[in-house]
């Protein structure tokens, strides 16, 4: 298993558990190697990394999960704006990528992060222009059908 996959798994679990008190389990059956293009349905947070690690980290949330996460952090609000949801998704993606960045820096792959971007669509197609790493993970929220996926399309400058 690639180090990036391990780091992303740890980071996603920690962010969900610490910020939203939501426990998630990694789907071990899900293929680690993604085959772009990837088609997502829901809301996608992304942060770009540049430096010794170059690429983009994506977090793909189902619409239902976004509501759950927002309600857990900000309190129940059936009329919550999509802007507030975007803010939460962006911040989660930033935390996961920040965590990955720190771990990669310890291995000598220093990089810088962009400000998060959030995409909405049905479907959204994510493809990679140039990169030798296409890694994916899938998690399910314990006791529900809610799913979160992660994608890392990147190139390591070794």
């Amino acid at each position: 298993m690639h180090d990036i996959t391990l780091f992303v798994r740890g980071a996603v679990r920690e962010v969900f558990s610490t910020m939203a008190s939501i426990d998630i389990t990694c789907n071990e059956e899900f293929p680690e190697i993604a085959t772009p293009p990837f088609t997502a349905d829901g809301i996608v947070g992304s942060v770009s990394v540049t430096g010794k690690l170059n690429g983009v980290v994506y977090l793909v949330f189902s619409a239902n999960l976004v509501k759950k996460v927002c309600n857990s952090i900000l309190g129940d609000d059936p009329t919550r704006s999509s802007q507030e949801e975007n803010d939460v998704i962006g911040e989660f993606t930033n935390m996961v990528t920040g965590n990955l960045k720190s771990k990669m820096a310890d291995k000598g792959f220093n990089c810088k992060l962009s400000i998060p971007t959030v995409l909405r669509g049905n479907p959204i197609t994510i493809d990679v222009a140039d990169g030798n790493l296409s890694l994916s993970n899938q998690f399910t929220v314990d006791g529900t059908q809610d799913v979160i996926s992660t994608l890392v399309f990147a190139k390591l400058d070794e």
Partner: peptide
């Protein structure tokens, strides 16, 4: 408050003079 816990980042902000720092996610 930073999402980046790397040593380099922490040393950089400590040098400028912070009282403390927190790594996101935080309780």
């Amino acid at each position: 408050l930073t999402a980046e816990a790397g040593r380099e980042n922490v040393v950089k902000i400590a040098r400028i003079g912070v009282r403390d720092y927190m790594i996101k996610p935080f309780k």
